[in-house]
Write a protein that binds this DNA or RNA. Structure first.
Lengths: 126, 126
DNA sequence: CTAAAACCTGACGCTGACGTCAGAGGCAAG
DNA sequence: CTTGCCTCTGACGTCAGCGTCAGGTTTTAG
């Protein structure tokens, strides 16, 4: 597969794929003229990268976890990294749930537009 | 309270507070010499701002929601905004849960370091 | 054969929530 | 009064994940 196909199937830009390669997250074989060629599995792999990005992992962190994910074998360090990220994501989820509840409160409050129950009602910003 | 106190109690930097003011999210009374003074409620308010930032809202979006939150009354537009952000946060939570499950798979896989079950095991990156 | 479409390598631009530095003024304690 | 900490404004710096443009080669469709 060529880069445009991978980009389309994975739902990312061509630029993004080149960036991933630059960051050492994605490799490609090159044709004699220098064009990148990818195996089918690259699409899934790119989607995993996207998912990890969306979960707040940096390129460097993903790169650190690469040997572990590829080999299927974890060193103590990689397990620490994995556990750390897992915990971070967990905290992030908790924070988001709190924020969502907060928005729900606000929605409920403004829909009723009466009973002064929630906080931050007394502080005015111009 | 002076700006340093608010910063410490809310767990943010002084710079951040000035930035919030710049963005129209936080106001302060000024002493004759120009120093900012905040009511106690500012601490809670700043923490709410932080929470909304962490949930992915931009300064502009928070500013848009300000009148609604302060007045406790929602216009149709603000309700649309609120519902939109709520939905976005919900999606984000779902994505994070998927990512967390993905990490759990990887952890489980590498801990066993045997049974080749998961995807992305065949794609190598240098 | 040729024109369009896709690909290549740089390299600069962008965005948002601050960090950081400079230079100057303000304020309670000893 | 002065020492040391706090605050002020203004302005540039940062960082990551790309977007975008330039200028050139390659592949593909007709």
């Amino acid at each position: 597969m060529r880069i445009g196909d991978v980009a389309e199937r994975a739902g990312v830009s061509v630029r993004a794929l080149r960036y991933y390669e630059e960051q050492g997250l994605l490799n490609a074989t090159r044709s004699t003229s220098g064009q990148r060629h990818y195996p089918d599995a690259a699409v899934e792999w790119v989607q995993l990268i996207q998912q990890l990005y969306a979960a707040g992992l940096s390129s460097a962190r993903i790169r650190d976890l690469l040997p572990c994910i590829q080999s299927g074998v974890s060193t103590p360090e990689s397990l620490t990294l994995l556990a750390g990220e897992r915990a971070r994501i967990d905290d992030q989820i908790k924070g988001l749930i709190e924020a969502r509840d907060r928005l729900d409160e606000i929605i409920a409050m403004t829909e009723r537009a009466s009973s002064p129950s929630s906080a931050c009602r007394t502080y005015r910003v111009p």
